[in-house]
Design a binder for these strands. Structure first.
Lengths: 149, 149
DNA sequence: CTTGATGCAAATGGTTTGCATGTTT
DNA sequence: AAACATGCAAACCATTTGCATCAAG
């Protein structure tokens, strides 16, 4: 099972992309580079495009969208578009989930392990192979439980 | 803790809505009635509008959207973003989660209980009181595991 | 040289909004 | 009467697509 290991090199990602049969163009390289540079930010397609355009103004947003689709299918990138606002993206090696406080917005990171029970249940009861990618659990953090009703 | 109990009566819902200060109009009553009638379907705003229009053709989609916003804020309705496609809605008393197949889009219902481990962990490790509202776990259903890679 | 990728512009689709009018409280 | 909700059309925004051109394999 793919896990949250070290950050990969650009060349690694490029190679994995090529392995799926997709062609490696300069635009695609730039998208991957920008995703690497984004760390644990979760940029939108538009944001990626703008940053990339500082290097190559020719790269169009639609290309970024198409590239994101390819790299997502290659399993390199995860779509974290939840809640409101546009979809955000991050590299797949950085797999994590969130618990977010309804009160103050504080975010706690959760690893896959927390969802083991759910995964097992789905397998046992439905033959469903769960691969949770990006879940956000709502609730109230310690501080907000004390403070407000 | 609010839980998935009996289906409420229309009048109950109406009363709860009124209690938040919102005005109760015939359109809003129709939205709630339609949500009740939808059982565990998850209608989109558009679908709700169409069904409502069989009773009152004057009711406009934008009204349905505005109503959904009000009833969501009143805590009567939960927004269920199932990945792609338009947002779907269901009554809050019917709390559950989903597993959705990446391949064919099939949806499996999961009850709160499946997430007990996550909830316990968050409480123990972070004093975080989780109240998951609507999570969608991705994966592959039995059929799609067999069929495709 | 073949196939897939790109730029651009235009289309799409879900959702939101401005405004004049109608309805609830 | 005052505040809020509605219908409608138009705006909006993220994303997708058709097509001619270009570059990677």
């Amino acid at each position: 099972m793919a896990d949250a290991g070290e950050a990969p090199e650009l060349d690694e990602l490029v190679e994995q992309l090529r392995a799926t049969g997709a062609r490696v163009t300069s635009a695609r390289r730039l998208v991957l580079r920008e995703l690497l540079a984004s760390g644990d930010e979760h940029p939108t397609a538009e944001e990626l495009a703008q940053r990339i355009q500082r290097t190559d103004p020719e790269v169009h947003v639609s290309t970024v969208y198409r590239t994101l689709e390819s790299v997502e299918q290659a399993g390199l990138v995860v779509r974290a578009g939840l809640g409101d606002g546009p979809t955000t993206y991050h590299l797949a090696h950085d797999r994590h989930h969130h618990a977010r406080c309804d009160g103050c917005g504080a975010v706690i990171h959760l690893d896959d392990r927390a969802f083991a029970t759910v995964v097992r249940r789905l397998e046992r009861d439905h033959g469903f192979l769960a691969a949770p990618r990006h879940l956000t659990v709502q609730g109230r953090c310690r501080g907000c439980r004390a403070t407000s009703g």
